[in-house]
Design a protein around this nucleic acid. Sequence first.
DNA 1: CGACACTTTGAAGACGATCAACGCCGGTGG
DNA 2: CCACCGGCGTTGATCGTCTTCAAAGTGTCG
Lengths: 249, 249
Amino acid sequence: MSATHPGPEKLQNIPLFTGIDAGLRERLLAEGRIRQVTDQANLFVQGDQVHSFFILLDGTVQLFRESPDGHEKTIDLLHHGQTLGASEIMDACATYRAHARSVGNTAVLEYSAGKLKEIARQNGSVALNLLAEMADQAHQAELEAEHQAKMSAAQLVACFMQRLCILFDYNPAGFDLPYSKTLIASRLGLEIETFSRTLHKLRDNGMVITGNHVEIRDLDALSDYVCESCSISRECLTHQKLARKVQGS
Amino acid sequence: MSATHPGPEKLQNIPLFTGIDAGLRERLLAEGRIRQVTDQANLFVQGDQVHSFFILLDGTVQLFRESPDGHEKTIDLLHHGQTLGASEIMDACATYRAHARSVGNTAVLEYSAGKLKEIARQNGSVALNLLAEMADQAHQAELEAEHQAKMSAAQLVACFMQRLCILFDYNPAGFDLPYSKTLIASRLGLEIETFSRTLHKLRDNGMVITGNHVEIRDLDALSDYVCESCSISRECLTHQKLARKVQGS
DNA sequence: CGACACTTTGAAGACGATCAACGCCGGTGG
DNA sequence: CCACCGGCGTTGATCGTCTTCAAAGTGTCG
């Protein structure tokens, strides 16, 4: 499953370039530089001068921040079609606000910051797509904050598992975790020990985890559990589902 | 201090309209409808069809979500020049994702959703300003999530107080809280009891609260305390300071 | 086989939420 | 003028949850 040669299909279905003329899209794609990135490599480092904008073609990228006391908090895990660096460029803030590190081999399309602005200025559709993407990013981040503030560890994990199923089209009845448990725990803002213990507690909610394998026995009960104290988890799930459908069309 | 008649100065210094020709700005302002809003009135309700976009002219608006179990979580408190509804409109999501309720008398400039899109499409500068605003919104929300995940109640409160000083240009040596404690607690995702107790504990960190009055004795020590486990609180503070300066110019 | 990263498990402790009671204040109505 | 009420804030006691520290188990790869 290495990403040394992203097929041409990886250049399709990029949300940023949807709804624009095919010829123009080709030209825009050609203006970016395709980069193969090995495991654990930094695309950029928190505090660096903003130089590039990235579109993720293949693989996974971990977006995370480092605090003075050494702790790492994973902000998000990104996949095909998602972008990095847009908000930094648009915010006219000179430095990256987080680290971006590849998880496994990945491929990205890289644009210079200036080039992105130029493209956005010259092409209204791309600018609108960019706006939609940033709106969604803001929305997801707000949800995230609400989750962190109000949900228990068990609810966070359950919510995460459900989103995994939607994102990767897994069968809830049985699938394998796509990341290490350490990475997931970091993504959820939990200590690895807490995460490990929580996985067992969820057995009572119809979710059985054995090693790397997850079985969700009762999806509805789990959904109720997740949504109980979260204003729009359910809405959020369907929204993501929708986004995926749109992206696939 | 009522907001029944926002002076014309309130129509200036709106970030969304900075950097555009004065004549055009006048026209854009004229296309919006000025609305006076009384205390505790809803600008929109979570789940409503998205109909309008708002620019806050005067007063404070509480943005909050309601969960099935009845709890309210305040997402943000907005002031002059900030906007509401942009991300919903751009996200092509049909409903508001939160409630917006006035805190005290306020004045807003209202545009229909369609009108906003039209303006953004026809005016590149406004679109870029909108992008910058959404980028900042996403950034703040990410920070928020990190804070909720990693900071203690005392750090949240200390951080909040510092931002108050920057936002309202208060003298840290002594100022009064601009909101009720209940509202602040909700904003920070804390129970009112926890918030109340935390205020006293902060005495050890050089912050003395008596009733409604706050005295910060040692700003540097407090800043260190806040940033100890937060990756960019300090950066965040200077960023807001910067944003304010830019807005004032 | 041994080194090392990852994960699990146990025990202790810190922290915030919850429940309950009370004090304070402004307004309303008798 | 006083009694009552409701909203707001404080304080105490208790409980559940998550973190922390420590130790041991599992796996992979040289």
